[in-house]
């Protein structure tokens, strides 16, 4: 049996390898999805209009994955267990949620037509009835800042706490 310290290190390295494998698969899958889309980009070929939207959506997914990875990694790294890192983990969760919300919002708007809006392009703009679930989802996702701003607030708190801890450590 290995000594405790060695066995802990071994466990951490193994877990990191597993996580890397999972994310490699995740990004490979994303590339395959891209290949499967008829409208998707081909090098030195003309691209159809929705390409930008697809890329944007994929970037949301990519960022979501990256944040989940950061959350898991910081949670399982023994050196990153201070209070500041707990706030950062909260940020990761909230911002992943925002990414998914934004993605849903972008998808929802595809199902809406100009007729679904009254007084468009004015402060009195409204979603015309009847209010369907898609319209309700769109309305909710329009207020994504309600999750975006708290997420950033946690990021600020996390960095503030970490900087204080670092300062205290340096003073010692």
């Amino acid at each position: 049996m290995l000594p405790e310290r060695h066995s802990t290190c071994f466990y951490m390295e193994e877990r990191e390898r597993i996580m890397n494998r999972i994310f490699a698969k995740y990004f490979t899958f994303m590339l395959l999805v891209l290949q499967a889309m008829p409208e998707s980009a081909w090098a030195l070929q003309p691209h159809s209009a929705p390409e930008g939207l697809y890329v944007h959506q994929m970037s949301h997914l990519l960022f979501t994955g990256a944040l989940v990875y950061l959350y898991m990694h910081t949670r399982r790294t023994p050196e990153l267990q201070s209070k500041g890192w707990k706030y950062l983990q909260t940020f990761c969760i909230l911002f992943s949620g925002w990414n998914l919300l934004a993605l849903i919002g972008h998808e929802a708007i595809k199902f809406l037509t100009p007729e679904d809006f009254i007084h468009a392009a004015t402060w009195n703009e409204q979603i015309a009835g009847p209010i369907t679930p898609v319209k309700m989802v769109y309305f909710i996702t329009k207020m994504d800042h309600l999750i975006y701003v708290p997420a950033l607030l946690f990021l600020v708190i996390a960095l503030r706490v970490l900087s204080r801890e670092a300062l205290k450590g340096k003073e010692k």
Partner: peptide
């Protein structure tokens, strides 16, 4: 019958 988007715009601006 309709859902006003004004709160969403306000949240969007301030947020």
């Amino acid at each position: 019958t309709a859902l006003p988007l004004f709160p969403a715009h306000i949240v969007d601006m301030i947020g």
